[in-house]
Design a protein around this nucleic acid. Structure first.
Lengths: 162, 162
DNA sequence: GCGAGATAGTTGACATATCAAATAATGACT
DNA sequence: AGTCATTATTTGATATGTCAACTATCTCGC
């Protein structure tokens, strides 16, 4: 049984002065919480020799199906943006999980696809990721989840037109 | 004026299938939003040749005052954990913003302090970070901020006893 | 005081991230 | 056809993150 006492971040990061505003506090809390969640997921996946980013790319490739996805489109769709998609794919290709193919109509483009081995890997990984994910989110109530989604959407929309 | 339409992440990351649960959706939204916020802050600071992690450490050093902080305590207090504190400090020391000193009572420990140059730098940086921070959080309402803090605290507390 | 074990920090090897060019193909305009 | 701007991707240099040893120091029990 976990002692589910909710600690304020101020205490967690050993800060002796109060935050200047609850907006600022929420910002710090957001960054810290996401970092913890990220590590939780990464821990689960690392046992299978894959990083969250690589897992994310593989899922995008699977979602795209037969046709594959152009390299930069992958970057757009990633949960956490990364400028290193090319090299990420280098590694996935090296491990035999992905494959690349030049587009014939527009020879600048490279279409990326998942291989059968990659699909099999995902079959193993999906439950693992699912479990770590649920574990990470175990501490929030259902109504809080709804509010969380709203607030996060607000933050993102407020930032897009910076 | 920004068009403040709140888009669901499903659309943002070009996912054609709905999420399996709103918990899962919230998890993805959390990671993505935090990533955007992190980049927003990093952009602001990068003009001054410093990374968010380095800025964070400098603030911790300033908060600790005269006595300084032992290296590993810094790691504990960071918003986003990092095992590379030693090297982070190497860089800060190299730029003349921080200084290290062996503890006499316990010679294993190294106390880290901020220099005067470091303090001056923070004077410049604080308003910059503050501005990017508020900009990042511009899209949420006050009541949402309160709920956000609660939900995030819930997630963190639910994870500590994993 | 001596050795087992814990603790604080550093280091080396390697993976990954980041940014600014470089390359290559396309499209639009002259 | 020939130049120019644009788009898609790759590459190189460099910074940073990560993990697993490793060193040095301390603490405790004997």
């Amino acid at each position: 049984m976990t002692t589910n006492t909710r600690r304020p971040i101020q205490e967690e990061i050993g800060q002796n002065q109060p935050f200047e505003s609850s907006r600022h506090e929420a910002l710090i809390a957001l960054l810290r919480t996401a970092d913890m969640v990220r590590r939780c997921i990464a821990d689960g996946l690392s046992l299978h020799g894959i990083t969250p980013q690589q897992y994310n790319v593989l899922r995008i490739l699977r979602g795209a199906g037969e046709n594959g996805v152009p390299t930069l489109t992958i970057a757009d769709r990633m949960v956490e943006r990364s400028p290193g998609v090319t090299r990420l794919l280098d590694r996935l290709e090296g491990k035999g999980w992905a494959r690349r193919r030049r587009c014939d109509e527009d020879r600048r483009r490279v279409y990326c696809e998942i291989t059968d081995t990659g699909l099999e890997l995902l079959m193993t990984l999906d439950p693992v990721a699912r479990r770590s994910g649920l574990m990470a989110m175990a501490g929030v109530t259902d109504p809080e989840v709804a509010g969380l989604l709203e607030a996060l959407a607000g933050i993102r929309s407020g930032m897009s037109g910076s």
